[in-house]
């Protein structure tokens, strides 16, 4: 049985429409709508507690909102969750790794969870690790890797099943400056190669002027547009603070 495609499903990247979510009486997200086209790096900027993690949980179907619509690569997450999730790569804020297993074992497990053919898995793992200069680490236990390498491994893993949309929730938390720079640059390159990126962060120095920007505050989208246009003559940090600061 076919259904009429909604406007959100017409977007081959990521589309969110009228998303609301409450924890009991507390509103976490209030009528959130936005689009991210393929080939776009979209930064979702918001202070702690703005609702970023709730939004990420809804986009990954760890939570389901009572109303609103989410479409990933043209697939509605509510009606066709399997197809939508198959097109989604995720790097969570909290590392999701088996510390006692090797990099290759972790990636093999992930490949099976996404239904990759068994015969193709070794090649896919090598290619994914090569992309992030991690191949020589394949046999090491994750416990023995430093924070930067763990994050790179998670990024390599999130790309193994060739997703159309890549979602990263504060992926540089806890990393040193060099590792942060390296991951931020790499993900910008992925956007340039055509991937649709949503990068949730509260760190303004990770956002470039030509990135799309969504400012989330107290569960609502406060501003959207190209970063350079939005910040004008201010630094992004000052502009962001002026948008989100609470009057004394």
């Amino acid at each position: 049985m076919s259904h009429t495609r909604s406007p959100a499903e017409a977007n081959p990247g990521l589309a969110v429409r009228e998303l609301n979510f409450h924890y009991g009486a507390k509103t976490a997200l209030d009528s959130v709508s936005f689009d991210v086209e393929p080939g776009t790096f979209c930064a979702l900027l918001g202070p702690n507690g703005a609702g970023k993690s709730t939004l990420v949980s809804l986009l990954t179907r760890l939570l389901v909102a009572p109303d609103g619509e989410i479409s990933v690569a043209g697939y509605d997450l509510r009606r066709t969750p399997r197809k939508a999730l198959a097109k989604l790569g995720v790097v969570f804020q909290q590392p999701a790794l088996d510390m006692g297993l090797t990099v290759r074992q972790n990636m093999t497990y992930f490949a099976a969870l996404h239904g990759l053919p068994r015969s193709a898995v070794p090649t896919r793992i090598d290619a994914a690790l090569d992309r992030l200069n991690m191949r020589e680490r394949a046999g090491e236990r994750v416990r023995d890797l430093n924070g930067g390498h763990r994050r790179r491994m998670e990024l390599a893993r999130a790309l193994m099943h060739d997703p159309t949309v890549l979602l990263l929730d504060e992926p540089t938390v806890g990393l040193d400056a060099a590792a942060r720079q390296s991951i931020t640059d790499h993900v910008h390159d992925l956007a340039a190669q055509g991937l649709c990126i949503l990068w949730a962060t509260h760190l303004t120095d990770e956002v470039r002027d030509d990135d799309q920007l969504l400012v989330l505050h107290r569960g609502q989208i406060l501003a959207r547009g190209q970063t350079g246009d939005l910040r004008g003559d201010h630094t992004l940090s000052n502009w962001f603070l002026s948008q989100t600061e609470v009057p004394a």
């Binding site: 990954t60 995720v90 590392p95 999701a96 969870l113």
Partner: peptide, 18 residues
């Protein structure tokens, strides 16, 4: 608590099967 449950639950396979 460690986060690896998220990896399992965001698999594209049905949750009951996982």
């Amino acid at each position: 608590e460690m986060g690896s449950m998220r990896l399992l639950l965001t698999s594209s396979f049905p949750r009951w099967w996982l």
